[in-house]
């Protein structure tokens, strides 16, 4: 594991990452040279139209999709120097994930589903249960602990998903279009929660969305188009205002 970390505050870095998928006989380039540096405490939103490569960036970052070219480092580790199982272990120790569509272990109830990440880390059942209840309380879903997740509304499911992502107290929270299936009210509630996590608990959050209206909750926005990062704007920069105004144009 080569140590390439220079900036101690740097958490994740992409060094000219390229990724292409083989479709039929030809290669389809999806990422055409991406450089990203995410620091501890950032709330990064990756936005862009469908097919721009946002989700591929996220999967590459999670260690699920090896790049064709370039380096991905996470906490100073070259992620793809590790084998698949080590990446899995790395992921479950450091990353919490929320998906657009919440997936559940259907045979388990809300509380048990939330405790799964801890159980995967070898934590005993009793401790995992207590932590799960604690985590559910944080997102205000304690009363639904005994329900089966699929019985809940989409907004409630995302809250439970957030509780599950937070239970291991991960360094980084990764969200893949978490508001995609929600109405605007539920979306706002979730985004406020994420913002709180970032500002109060200093969680690093990386969120992919195509919804510009959620940019104001973040601290930085990466605009992707056709496999490259077109624009990288930090909160407070003059372009920030333009970006947040884009939503009214749309």
């Amino acid at each position: 594991m080569a140590i390439v970390n220079k900036d101690p505050k740097e958490l994740i870095s992409f060094g000219s990452v390229k990724k292409s998928f083989r479709v039929g006989t030809g290669d389809v380039p999806v990422l055409k040279g991406i450089d990203i540096s995410i620091k501890n405490g950032d709330f990064v939103v990756i936005i862009g139209p469908s097919g721009s490569g946002k989700s591929t960036v996220l999967h590459t970052l999670l260690g699920l999709e090896p790049p064709t070219e370039g380096d991905v480092s996470f906490l100073g580790f070259d992620l793809y120097d590790l084998d698949q199982d080590d990446r899995a272990e790395f992921r479950r120790k450091n990353v919490g994930i929320i998906y657009q569509q919440s997936y559940w272990v259907k045979s388990l109830n809300v509380m048990e589903n939330v405790s799964v990440p801890l159980l995967l880390n070898g934590v005993s059942e009793e401790i995992a249960r207590d932590k799960a209840l604690e985590s559910l309380e944080k997102v205000g879903m304690l009363n639904w602990a005994e329900y089966v997740p699929t019985e809940l509304s989409a907004g409630q499911q995302q809250k439970v998903g957030l509780a599950r992502a937070l239970i291991t107290n991960p360094l980084v929270l990764v969200a893949d279009e978490p508001t995609g299936n929600l109405d605007s009210l539920s979306g706002d509630i979730l985004m406020k929660m994420l913002q709180e996590l970032n500002t109060i608990h200093h969680k690093t959050i990386i969120m992919v969305t195509h919804d510009l209206q959620y940019i104001p909750y973040s601290t930085r926005a990466l605009v992707m188009k056709d496999g490259i990062i077109e624009q990288s704007v930090t909160k407070g920069q003059p372009e920030w205002k333009d970006l947040t105004l884009l939503k009214s144009k749309k």
Binding site: L62, L64, D85, A88, F90, I97, W104, V116, P117
Partner: peptide, 10 residues
């Protein structure tokens, strides 16, 4: 997929 994404080994 979910379990693997959460870090369950193959």
């Amino acid at each position: 997929g979910l379990l693997k994404a959460m870090g369950m080994k193959s």
